[in-house]
């Protein structure tokens, strides 16, 4: 099932802010590249992160190699708009006339979600780009999508746009985009969440919303899990141990409290979400770097 996941053309990773979307994105990219796939990570939020996680400088709007077979790019609205408009309008002068006059710029900010449209358009273009006929340039494109609310807006942009606009080249592309995002053989959206109340609730809501919008989903990643480590008897015994064991006792109690929350939310999610659940343990690394990504990639590979 995991290998099947990495055999898609496009994976979109979303979830509540702070749940570790970029970490999971980076780890999935690493796992796929190790299988010999040529992978492109597309980041669309204001601050680029994935290149840094691999200890590399930010890629910016140019595609950069991070590791063998693993590339990343930062998709920004302004550049994406220009490239995309040029693809449709063909002529630089026409582009300048329509897009680079002050009046038109105001106008474009009124078009709902135009920034999202062009950014998603750029990602879609990468995902479908062919090196030569029938041979895609990228085996897998992974989109580090915006957080929950905005993530849903982002992924449903073609649908919303098509409600407003039915004709024109943009509408045609949006239709293609929607069919790529909606095809379970080519695309999956994965939710990342934490064993805490709000992130877990949001994951459940998001799961329902993605389903309602007919967007096929991959496994749910439950990040930052604690496994039980002490039996109740052990904790009672340590608690009776007096001052010499006070610190150890508190640490054990804290640990078990978090393990309880992990198993509570794993079971809540298991009941409300009909997707495979991949648990990622909490990592105690002092610096979150390539080694930590390696660990997570290893866990995902094992789970797949």
């Amino acid at each position: 099932m995991a290998s099947a996941l990495l055999d898609r053309r496009l994976l979109a990773i979303t979830g509540k802010g702070g749940t570790g979307k970029s970490t999971i994105t980076a780890a999935l990219a690493l796992a796929a590249s190790r299988r010999g796939k040529k992978v492109l990570v597309c980041e669309v939020v204001a601050n680029e992160r994935v290149a840094n996680l691999f200890g590399k400088p930010a890629s910016g709007t140019e595609i950069r190699l991070l590791l063998p077979n693993l590339y990343s790019v930062h998709v920004r609205p302004r550049e994406a708009m220009r490239e995309y408009a040029l693809m449709i309008l063909k002529y630089e002068t026409l582009y300048k006339l329509a897009f680079e006059n002050a009046a038109a710029r105001y106008f474009l900010s009124a078009a709902p979600s135009l920034a999202e449209i062009v950014m998603l358009g750029k990602v879609w273009w990468h995902a479908t780009q062919e090196e030569e006929r029938g041979k895609p340039r990228w085996d897998l494109v992974i989109l580090d999508a915006p957080a929950t609310g905005h993530g849903l807006t982002f992924l449903t942009v073609p649908e919303v746009f098509l409600q407003l606009v039915q004709d024109g080249p943009l509408a045609r592309d949006m239709r293609d985009m929607q069919s790529l995002l909606g095809n379970p053989d080519t695309c999956r959206t994965c939710i990342v969440t934490l064993p805490e109340e709000m992130p877990a609730n949001e994951a459940i809501e998001l799961h329902k919303a993605l389903k309602a919008h007919s967007l096929p989903q991959g496994p749910l990643f439950l990040n930052g899990c604690f496994e039980p480590r002490f039996t109740p008897q052990e904790r009672v015994a340590v608690a009776r141990g007096g001052p010499a064991l006070a610190a150890a006792g508190e640490a054990a109690d804290n640990h078990e409290a978090r393990a309880d929350l992990s198993s509570l939310y794993a079971s809540v999610l298991g009941k409300s979400v009909d997707l495979p659940l991949i648990k990622i343990p909490f990592l105690f690394d002092r610096v979150f770097n390539a080694q930590a990504i390696e660990k997570v990639a290893g866990i995902i590979e094992g789970a797949l």
Binding site: I88, L89, A98, A104, V165, D167, G168, P169
Partner: peptide
């Protein structure tokens, strides 16, 4: 300008 923009967004 309007014609060009409408090619992009559709006239509707």
């Amino acid at each position: 300008v309007l014609k060009t923009l409408s090619r992009f967004t559709g006239a509707e």
